[in-house]
Design a protein around this nucleic acid. Sequence first.
DNA 1: CTTGACTCCGTACCATGGTACAGACCTTAT
DNA 2: ATAAGGTCTGTACCATGGTACGGAGTCAAG
Lengths: 135, 135
Amino acid sequence: MRELTIAGLARAGGVGVETVRYYQRRGLLETPERLGSMGHGSGVRRYGEQDVRRLRFIRSAQAAGFTLEQIAELIALDAIDDRTRARELARERIAALDAKIAEMKAARDALSRLARACDDVSGGPCPIVTAFEPQ
Amino acid sequence: MRELTIAGLARAGGVGVETVRYYQRRGLLETPERLGSMGHGSGVRRYGEQDVRRLRFIRSAQAAGFTLEQIAELIALDAIDDRTRARELARERIAALDAKIAEMKAARDALSRLARACDDVSGGPCPIVTAFEPQ
DNA sequence: CTTGACTCCGTACCATGGTACAGACCTTAT
DNA sequence: ATAAGGTCTGTACCATGGTACGGAGTCAAG
């Protein structure tokens, strides 16, 4: 364990090296000590399975719509085992997702109807554009 | 017609004055001539129903997930009556919305299961946090 | 023991969609 | 005629989530 360089970690997580460093700056990933032959402050940082899991956690949570700030909070909650707050965050996110999903569905259906109308209608203005204009 | 000041237009569209100016800079809204008692370049700009419709169009299209750049394109297409391209944009957007909706639904369901699991499970680590970590 | 690839670090820059001034000007009511 | 409040213009700044780059250090192979 702890054999990966930063490029290896990035590859394992499907992100770029600069993104890993960015997450470190944001406090989402740890920055291990540089270890090398010449003691203090020399050498290269190495990463292990834990870091890969953490990085993948970040990407999954991000896919679920959490912001990096919320993800940092989830990580902190994990450390102190605060289930109540974690549940709270999860429920907030579910509500936000539900709202957004409904909105996107409505938009999708409206657009779908419009594209069909645009196929059918032969004269006059394009329904796709006019439809967004109230009346 | 054409009796609104910029603040009236902004109010009618449910946005701030600075947002209207921003849309003007982006070419999404027109910037009418300043008209006043002292000729050239004096006076205040006035807006009418057309502008309100345009502003609402922008907000609706935005709600459907179009970027401001795409909205600018839709507006331009309307002007030259290019239905083919408008349909193309609509279909692209529908596909993107479908993908995003599916992704968000999956995330929503996963989170929902997790919140329930977090209620049930009494000992051990919080499932909400561990679940995102692949094994 | 040099060469080439990679790392480290700081800082700067990017896109997107705004928001916030400052300072001058204009309009409207009193 | 003057004061209050809205407008105009330019420029600067904001959050979010990265991406790029320069210059120095380090590591591994030949």
